[in-house]
C-alpha cells in the first residue's frame, strides 16, 4: 500500500507520531520560519502551519508550507472555514497539493473578533465538518464540492481534524469526534491538554466506542513559559481548561521555564504510556519553537522514524 504522506505512513504503521506547530509571521519574511523548520527537522514527523491563527493576518499557511517543505519537514496545512468560501477553499486545496503538500487539517477557525481585523466579515460558507467531507470526496470520489467531476489529478490529502475535549457539551464532544471520523478525518489533533483527568475521561469514552481504532488521535500538549501564561489561558481562552495546580506549580517553581518543559515532558510520557488510544503527540510550543527538540529528545521520542519516499504516493 502506498501512503498519502509520511505522517500517514508513520501513524498507520503503528508508530507514535510527533507533530509540532509553526506559526507564520506577521510580515513577508520567512527567515524565522526557515530557522524553526531547520531546527525541528529531525525531531518531528510533520508540522502544522497555522492559518491566520486567532484571526491575525500572517503569511498564508500554504505559502509558508512551501518553505517548510523546502526546509525538509512535511507540512500539515491548516485550513479554516473563516476566511474562504468553497470556491477559494478548493482553489487552495488544489494549489497546496500541486505545491507538494500532503496533509491538511480542517478547522472552524477562531472568530475574527479576537484578531487584528475585528471589523471584517467572516465567511463560513462551509463548516469544518463539511470541509472534511468535501476534501475526502475530492480524493476518493474525484468530485468537487458541487459534485462536478475532477477529470484528472485529484488532490489526495491525508485528512486531519481537531477535537476539543475541554469544550462543552462534554458528552457531545465524543459524538462530534465520531462525526468527523464519519466525514473522513484520518487523524485528530486535540486542543492543548492541561486537565489530564478530563482528557482521560474523554479517551475512555472514545475507546468504548472504538473511535480510536478508526482514527489516529494525537494529544495536543503545550509547554508553558510562566504562570501568567497559564493564568491567561485559564481565564481568557474559551474552550481551554487549565487546572489551578498547574498555575501553582509554575508559580512556585524556581525556574518556571524549566518547570514548564518538565511538565510537558511528563505529560507526553503520561499520554504515551498510560492512555490507550493515543497515537501521537502534537507539541504546540506557542512562540517557543526552539524548545521542541529538547522536549522531543527528553521525552524519549528521538530519533524519529525514517520513511522511504518510495512508500508514498
Amino acid at each position: 500500500m502506498k501512503y498519502l504522506s509520511k505522517l500517514h505512513k508513520i501513524l498507520d504503521s503503528g508508530q507514535f507520531a510527533v507533530t509540532a506547530e509553526i506559526g507564520p509571521p506577521k510580515h513577508a519574511s520567512v527567515e524565522g520560519v526557515k530557522h524553526h523548520a531547520h531546527m525541528m527537522k529531525d525531531y518531528v514527523d510533520a508540522t502544522n502551519i497555522t492559518d491566520c491563527q486567532t484571526a491575525i493576518v500572517r503569511i498564508s499557511s500554504i505559502a509558508t508550507g512551501v518553505h517548510v517543505l523546502g526546509a525538509g519537514i512535511e507540512p500539515i496545512v491548516q485550513m479554516t472555514c473563516r476566511d474562504r468560501n468553497r470556491i477559494a477553499m478548493q482553489a487552495d486545496i488544489l494549489g497546496a497539493y500541486c505545491l507538494g503538500m500532503r496533509n491538511m487539517l480542517c478547522l472552524s477557525g477562531d472568530h475574527q473578533k479576537f484578531g487584528n481585523h475585528p471589523t471584517s466579515k467572516n465567511v463560513y460558507d462551509v463548516d469544518s465538518m463539511q470541509l472534511i467531507q468535501a476534501l475526502r470526496r475530492m480524493r476518493d470520489d474525484k468530485v468537487f464540492f458541487s459534485g462536478e467531476e475532477i477529470k484528472e489529478c485529484e488532490p489526495r490529502f491525508f485528512i486531519g481534524a481537531v477535537a476539543n475535549p475541554f469544550a462543552d457539551p462534554f458528552e457531545y464532544r465524543i459524538d462530534r469526534l465520531e462525526k468527523k471520523v464519519e466525514a473522513g478525518a484520518q487523524f485528530i489533533q486535540t486542543q492543548c491538554i492541561f486537565d489530564m483527568e478530563r482528557f482521560e475521561r474523554f479517551m475512555e469514552k472514545v475507546r468504548e466506542r472504538g473511535i480510536d481504532q478508526r482514527v489516529h488521535i494525537l494529544a495536543g500538549l503545550t509547554p508553558l513559559k510562566s504562570w501568567r501564561g497559564a493564568k491567561y489561558m485559564q481565564s481568557n481562552v474559551s474552550g481551554m481548561i487549565v487546572p489551578d495546580s498547574i498555575v501553582e506549580r509554575l508559580k512556585s517553581a524556581e525556574d518556571p521555564k524549566k518547570e514548564g518543559v518538565d511538565l510537558c515532558i511528563e505529560q507526553i510520557k503520561y499520554v504515551r504510556e498510560k492512555i490507550k488510544g493515543v497515537h501521537g503527540v502534537h507539541v504546540m510550543a506557542i512562540a517557543w519553537e526552539e524548545i521542541v527538540p529538547e522536549i522531543v529528545e527528553r521525552s524519549g521520542l528521538y530519533p524519529r522514524p525514517q520513511v522511504d519516499p518510495s512508500e508514498l504516493e
Binding site: D110, K113, Y124, D127, Q130, R176, K179, S238
Partner: peptide, 29 residues
C-alpha cells in the same frame, strides 16, 4: 451561532457560552 456552523458546536463553546463573549449563548449548546 457566530460562525453559522451547521454541524456544531465548535471548540470555542464552553459553559454554554460562545467564544466571542460570555454574554452570548452558544446556539449549539
Amino acid at each position: 451561532c457566530s460562525k453559522s456552523i451547521l454541524n456544531g458546536p465548535c471548540g470555542g463553546s464552553q459553559y454554554g457560552k460562545c467564544e466571542i463573549s460570555k454574554d452570548v449563548d452558544c446556539a449549539w449548546q
